[in-house]
Computed example of a mutant assay.
Amino acid sequence: MAAQETMVKRTLIALAAALVASAGWGLGARESTALSPDSMAFPGVRPSPFASLLRHGGSVAVVYADRDTTSLRVIEIPVDGALPKEAPRPVFVDKVDIVSPLGGSFGLHASAVVDGRLHLLYLDREKEDRPLLKRVREDAGGWRLELVEPFGPPVGVLVGVDGRPMDVWAPGSLLLRGETTNLVLRERCVPRGQAVLLDPERETPSSGFGFWDDAAGELVVVLNGPEGVQSSAMSGVGPVFALAETPDRGLAAATFDPGSRRILLLERDAGGGPFRQTTVTVCDGTNGLFLAWTPSGWLFVYDEVRSTPPGRWSWELVILSPGPRTSGRPRYRRSVLSSDPSLLSGFRALITDGSIFILEMRDELRLLKTAAP
């Protein structure tokens, strides 16, 4: 009897393992590959929770706010070649807070490259009772600054058919800046944090972005296409998400479902219709996601909170890259970029010219670079 029970248990374990493998789940630490990416430190920088990483000409631009200098700054690093050990001298944009203590929205901004020049929309606080929304654009002489009214948190920057930037912000409703008047995209809107670009690597105008709306408790997607700028809600996606275009210019989203502890992928063709949902992998917990299409399939970057007994935690930065696909669901290779007991509050990522750039946001900033699969 004992031998039969042992055989049954072994059979069940084998079946469970086969099911997990066929679903592409269960890629544990022993099946992970430890990567050794290039690493660039930002010495002396205490960052805000908000940062941007985008392609700017032959460089990757990092936009961040420094708590010690209460300033918004930009650093550019060439796309080609290895990363320097330390970040080059930053370009000062503006002092964005002079009142202590710093608020929770310190450093909040939206960014885009418009006609080859950086365009930033950001919060400033000149006095305790006077918050401002500012717009700056790169100019031959430095930065050209303007105030944006009415005041509200920045959400995104799009580009019109005439090549002019179109600011999107939320002073209670979601507004799109027009030539003569502002267009209301949503009557009531309370964005949470920074919006997520569909295509941070694109130097031509962005096709859109998404953000979590606390007023409605849903993901809002703003798309900029031939028919103009349109906003819509996307169901089935939680506050932790990433967006990307499908190969046929459709829409895809990755999201974390805390109830099932799974990262999910939702895809919809360019022609519209319902989203198709598949499970990507099991995850103990994550604060951020990145999604991008590669010639081999979908690539994911996420941070995973893992328990390291006794009573300790570790934050891993993980790349999930598509493996060879024979039939059924795709299989993924799990690679660990970094693992550290210090809190990973977030990250930004983009893929360009065969490399993945990832801005790691802990107590300090660190830029990582590794070859794209």
Rank of each mutant, 00 (worst) to 15 (best):
P324G: 08
G57C: 11
G311S: 15
S335G: 00
V221T: 06
L53E: 07
Q277H: 05
R306D: 09
H109K: 12
E86W: 01
P101D: 12
F290T: 00
P373F: 01
G107W: 06
G250Y: 07
G26H: 05
G208I: 05
R67G: 01
E76H: 00
F290V: 00
G250M: 10
R261C: 09
F106L: 07
T255A: 05
A16H: 08
S355P: 00
V159C: 06
S100V: 08
P78S: 08
I351E: 09
V99S: 09
R135E: 13
V280Q: 04
F211A: 03
T33N: 00
P295V: 07
E201G: 11
V45I: 15
L183H: 09
A253S: 11
T255E: 02
S339K: 12
L320K: 08
A292E: 05
L145K: 14
L185Y: 09
V74M: 09
V96R: 03
A16D: 10
S39C: 12
Y302P: 04
G24M: 13
D66N: 12
P84A: 11
P330I: 06
G228I: 13
L147Y: 02
A29Y: 02
W293Q: 12
L197A: 15
V237A: 10
Q277M: 15
P49D: 07
E245W: 06
V229A: 03
T281L: 12
E360R: 14
T308E: 14
S260M: 09
I98S: 15
D257G: 05
I77Q: 04
V45A: 03
T180L: 15
V74H: 06
T246S: 14
V168N: 03
R117K: 14
E360S: 13
V136Y: 00
G208T: 04
D115K: 14
Y302M: 10
E360M: 04
G228T: 13
R192S: 13
G163D: 08
A253V: 10
T255G: 07
R276D: 12
I75N: 01
A372I: 05
P239H: 10
R366T: 13
G250C: 10
R306K: 13
L337N: 02
G208D: 04
A34V: 14
T326W: 11
V168R: 05
T6G: 03
P322K: 09
A21G: 09
E267L: 08
S100E: 08
E245T: 10
Q230V: 15
E364N: 08
D68F: 00
P191N: 09
R249C: 04
R46H: 11
I358R: 03
V190R: 15
A3S: 15
L365H: 04
A3F: 12
L365D: 05
R73A: 08
G311I: 05
S207W: 03
A253Q: 02
G141R: 13
A349Q: 04
R366N: 03
T294Y: 00
V96H: 02
S338H: 03
L175F: 11
A29P: 01
S296F: 01
P258E: 12
P226R: 15
P330H: 04
A140Q: 11
S105I: 06
R30C: 01
G44Y: 05
Y302F: 15
C283S: 14
L35I: 04
E364T: 14
F256C: 03
R130P: 00
P88T: 08
S314K: 14
L132I: 05
